Amino acid sequence: NKASVVANQLIPINTALTLIMMKAEVVTPMGIPAEEIPKLVGMQVNRAVPLGTTLMPDKVKNYE
C-alpha cells in the first residue's frame, strides 16, 4: 500500500505548504502520493484542510 499526503495540522485556505504541515500515511481513498511532498512545498491550498485530512489534487492550486 502506498502512502498519501495527510495534513499534520489545520492548513488555512491559501496557505503555502511546508514540510512540517504534511505527513505520509496509508489512507483510503488515496490522495496525492507521499513521494510528491517535496514538489508540494510552496504550493498553496485552495481551501482549508483540517488536521488528519488527506490532501487530494483538487485541494492544491496548480497541482498536476
Score class of each variant (00 low, 15 high):
residue 22 M to T: 03
residue 22 M to N: 01
residue 26 V to D: 07
residue 3 A to C: 12
residue 15 T to C: 09
residue 27 V to K: 06
residue 19 L to E: 10
residue 51 L to T: 11
residue 32 I to Y: 03
residue 12 P to C: 09
residue 37 I to A: 04
residue 43 M to I: 06
residue 28 T to D: 14
residue 23 K to R: 15
residue 19 L to G: 07
residue 29 P to F: 07
residue 56 M to T: 15
residue 44 Q to D: 04
residue 29 P to G: 05
residue 38 P to R: 09
residue 15 T to H: 04
residue 32 I to K: 02
residue 43 M to Y: 10
residue 43 M to G: 03
residue 58 D to Y: 12
residue 35 E to Q: 11
residue 62 N to P: 02
residue 38 P to N: 10
residue 49 V to I: 15
residue 25 E to C: 15
residue 63 Y to K: 04
residue 14 N to M: 08
residue 60 V to F: 05
residue 13 I to F: 06
residue 13 I to G: 07
residue 51 L to Q: 15
residue 20 I to Q: 14
residue 14 N to S: 05
residue 47 R to W: 10
residue 31 G to K: 02
residue 50 P to I: 08
residue 60 V to L: 12
residue 41 V to E: 04
residue 10 L to D: 15
residue 59 K to E: 15
residue 57 P to I: 00
residue 25 E to Q: 14
residue 3 A to I: 04
residue 38 P to C: 13
residue 2 K to L: 13
residue 50 P to Q: 11
residue 28 T to L: 12
residue 4 S to E: 01
residue 38 P to Q: 09
residue 40 L to S: 01
residue 54 T to E: 04
residue 7 A to D: 01
residue 15 T to L: 06
residue 22 M to F: 06
residue 49 V to M: 09
residue 42 G to K: 00
residue 34 A to P: 02
residue 23 K to P: 07
residue 47 R to K: 14
residue 47 R to G: 14
residue 54 T to V: 10
residue 5 V to N: 02
residue 59 K to H: 15
residue 51 L to D: 11
residue 60 V to D: 02
residue 52 G to T: 00
residue 40 L to A: 01
residue 7 A to Q: 01
residue 51 L to R: 15
residue 35 E to L: 11
residue 53 T to C: 15
residue 57 P to T: 01
residue 52 G to S: 03
residue 8 N to H: 06
residue 55 L to V: 06
residue 11 I to W: 02
residue 17 L to H: 00
residue 38 P to H: 11
residue 42 G to I: 07
residue 50 P to K: 08
residue 12 P to E: 09
residue 46 N to A: 11
residue 44 Q to H: 11
residue 19 L to C: 14
residue 63 Y to P: 06
residue 37 I to V: 03
residue 56 M to D: 07
residue 43 M to T: 03
residue 48 A to N: 14
residue 44 Q to S: 10
residue 57 P to E: 04
residue 28 T to Y: 13
residue 35 E to K: 11
residue 44 Q to K: 11
residue 35 E to W: 13
residue 26 V to T: 10
